[in-house]
Design a protein around this nucleic acid. Sequence first.
DNA 1: ACCCCTGCTGTGAACGTACACAGTAGAGTT
DNA 2: AACTCTACTGTGTACGTTCACAGCAGGGGT
Lengths: 348, 348
Amino acid sequence: MTDTAPNRSRRAGSGRPPTIHDLAAEAGVSRGTVSRVLQGGRNVSPASQDAVNAAIRKLGYVVNLAARSLVTQRAGTVAFLVSETQDVLFEDPNFMTLLLGCTQALAKYDVPLVLITAGTEAERRRIIPYFSAHHVDGVLLFSSHRGNPMIEHLQRAGLPFVCCGKPLGRHGAVSYVGADDREGARTMMRYLLDSGRRRIATIAGPQDTPGGLERLTGYRELLSEYGVRHDKNLVTIGDYSRASGAACMEQLLSRTPDLDAVFVASDLMADGALTTIGRAGLNVPGDIAVAGFDDSPVATAVQPQLTTIRQPWDRISESMVRQLLAQISGEGTATVILPTELVVRESA
Amino acid sequence: MTDTAPNRSRRAGSGRPPTIHDLAAEAGVSRGTVSRVLQGGRNVSPASQDAVNAAIRKLGYVVNLAARSLVTQRAGTVAFLVSETQDVLFEDPNFMTLLLGCTQALAKYDVPLVLITAGTEAERRRIIPYFSAHHVDGVLLFSSHRGNPMIEHLQRAGLPFVCCGKPLGRHGAVSYVGADDREGARTMMRYLLDSGRRRIATIAGPQDTPGGLERLTGYRELLSEYGVRHDKNLVTIGDYSRASGAACMEQLLSRTPDLDAVFVASDLMADGALTTIGRAGLNVPGDIAVAGFDDSPVATAVQPQLTTIRQPWDRISESMVRQLLAQISGEGTATVILPTELVVRESA
DNA sequence: ACCCCTGCTGTGAACGTACACAGTAGAGTT
DNA sequence: AACTCTACTGTGTACGTTCACAGCAGGGGT
């Protein structure tokens, strides 16, 4: 034993989990060398590395995160912050896709995810100290709607964060990752127009979200580019919920019964629209082509299955995690726009 | 300054967050007294308490969890472990209800929730050391299906955990919290029978889950108690998914076209059944009464809205959290069965 | 006058890790 | 032969907190 252990030497299985002291003793090296092996093994002889690794396996050593965190001044964790009321989330299939995607992306880096919800203003105030004290190293921010009041709190706390989708409003340089909503909308519209549809209605998303705006823009652009007359009666605005999709569709059918297609800004709303259309005794896609957006799990759960635009959620979550970790390591903010993909199924 | 601070004294706002040293200096007391105030203030004079609290507010102090964790040998966090493949989760509205419920219940105790997914065997193996090293103080276990292999790992690691629903299989004393599935099924069946229905079919849940078994048992019991002849053709087994509900309903309609009600073991399957019934041109509840189970968000999203059995998810998550924290504090295991509630809407 | 007891306070360890620093040996260069 | 440089190793200390212990005053009992 070359190390002057201040505490009485501890054998394996003596109750408490083994520490680097025990590893050092077992491997016949010093704490410093053990620590170096744990960080990747630069400047450590192969012999020492093997000895330490053998000791790790033998003793079943796992690093004590609290101790590491204390000295490195880093939490070693990342928060997933949901600043949205619960009822909105239950209907949003994208939320869980993103949450689980981020969890798994973080798992690759051995970074635990701390889930924090802050739907109300009171909850939001409660968690600010938590962030200010840097109990997490960074934040993945989920907020589908409106300008998020947490952004400036996070900026003030100097805590790295990445938004899912471009945040509305002005807040200096902000990292975000999102899909190319406008190009996705354009692709779908091109597909519908090339299929010969001309009376194309739309059920757009809420116009206080970037996604909602962009998808409507894409809709309009393609109509112009194909020289199709623009009809205001063909445009309705939903809120991404199934119910609003059904309601908008009802409105469209009564206002413009001659429509031959509808571009819906989310699969969930498209599902609602399908129900309305079915109840009206019309056939999809025979009478009306229905196009969704998201390629969420509902797209394949409904009948007929939805032709839709696939948002690359796996790549979005992965990219958010990568951006956040980069920012935590000192790199600057960045924005990433990922391409979407047309998925043709039965509804259009 | 009565405290011999080994590090150069630090003023507020000098970069790094304030520590109890700074608080002690500011309040004119010792570290020990500050620490005592932080733990609740037993054996501290009111004057000292006020001084410390004033200093906390003035300096914006927040405790360093890593340091506390290091000395108390407790992580101060709790894991929410999902050992289920992703695709199952997307369709299960109860999952998110429970997850968000637990997050909020834990927030009341200032305990952060760490989300961990382990759908595959490989992932499961990866996280065992994490648990063994006690990186969390306890685990909330979500697994709707089959016997869970994580249970024995957790028991071996000596880590407190609470299951959601009674786990199948033998594993000694295990804490769990669940709803009274059988009594819920009995209540619903009593309601249907009292409404005059006699040809009552059922779409049961998977028979490798306690809930699925219990709800089917309740169905059978009430038929017997009302002296209604039991017909095997009226029983189908689904897997809680929307698609399986639709398929089972199709089967029922062809096998027993004279049925006048169907008791479905989950709202999601009931939704599928509604679709099938609607497509067959039949009316709900006129021709067929449809009864769901769960009172999940879909119950009110569908048309007609579902008469269903409400599972008290808010109380379940709260109870799980309470049990877990009690167990972490040294108390023994316990099982909690919570009552359900009949919610009458339009479908029955 | 003595004692004990109670309420309050300050001090010295730990907790387990990472990092800066100093030191060693050996290979290569001049 | 003296040197520099590189690869590797061990030691001391700090991170911020809690806890056990000791100390101290003052009140109430003998």
